[in-house]
Design a protein around this nucleic acid. Structure first.
Lengths: 147, 147
DNA sequence: AGACGATGCTCAGCAGGCTGACCATTCGAC
DNA sequence: GTCGAATGGTCAGCCTGCTGAGCATCGTCT
């Protein structure tokens, strides 16, 4: 008898979180084949544009440094990425895509499964994206700025 | 020089997750005053309609039983909720809102701060909600059904 | 050169997600 | 009544988030 969930009556925050979790879940299932998950994959894509410092990656992903550190632990452990201290600034750690990482990101992202995930679930994808981008803009400014 | 994030070029999944995290973060900051967070608050609101079993709560929140178990641990530890074995079916645990829980949920949810959070960040809230609700509908059906 | 703040990263600990494995109780079929 | 499957919760372990604290290096200012 347990009634099916009725999302249209939920608070907006819960709607957002639940949708995000469901998408991550499907995406993770797809990426599992390469030993990746949604966060690792996003980092890999970022690093595929050339070596990056951890701080740069953390800021790009809108995440704390400590979180990025552990995501990179996992990527390194799986051989998707290498880390070495910068020679010019020994505080920095240069994160570089490995060959297996390059293959993984290419294969996992080839058939843009990421966006096909939304097929049938979204009426107007560009509109949804625009609204979400605006939320991210406003709230991340509110969070990471001086004020 | 580090360029500010440009969400409009992100993958949709990442957009969704990031927006959700930012909203949770602000919401948690508000609820912290009552020893609550976004997940605990949502559970509390659910229980305020009368005692529920843990399984019911888990399904309503679209979460695994184990996750709900630990959220309730915390709510119980903070005295927001009481748990007692059902007398008619001793496998079930009845979760009941406590007095302090009732006060907390009333105060924290009074000035609907939850929705004001989106003021200025969203153009057409009903449209956003409708799109998100559809995503949740489709993906949760895909996940929790037999198929 | 020395001192001191800013910067880049890691460690420890908490929380909410998840999976897999397990236990207790109930229900149904025999 | 007994046995076995279904049901309701928990334990352990992993992952990504967060905060708070600490360490090493770099820059700057005197």
């Amino acid at each position: 008898m347990s009634s099916p969930p009725d999302p249209s009556s939920w608070a907006t925050g819960r709607l957002l979180s639940t949708a995000a979790r469901l998408v991550e879940h499907e995406w993770d299932a797809h990426l599992d084949r390469w030993g990746l998950n949604h966060s690792g994959f996003a980092v890999l894509r970022m690093v595929s544009g050339g070596p990056r410092s951890q701080r740069e990656l953390a800021q790009a992903m809108q995440v704390e440094d400590q979180t990025m550190s552990r995501v990179l632990d996992r990527l390194e452990r799986h051989g998707h990425v290498t880390r070495e201290r910068s020679t010019t600034d020994r505080r920095r750690v240069e994160v570089t895509l490995s060959d297996t990482g390059r293959v993984a990101v290419a294969e996992a992202g080839s058939d843009d499964a990421a966006e096909r995930l939304f097929a049938g679930a979204v009426e107007d994808l560009p509109a949804l994206r625009a609204q979400l981008a605006r939320v991210v803009d406003v709230l991340s400014a509110r969070r990471w700025s001086a004020g």
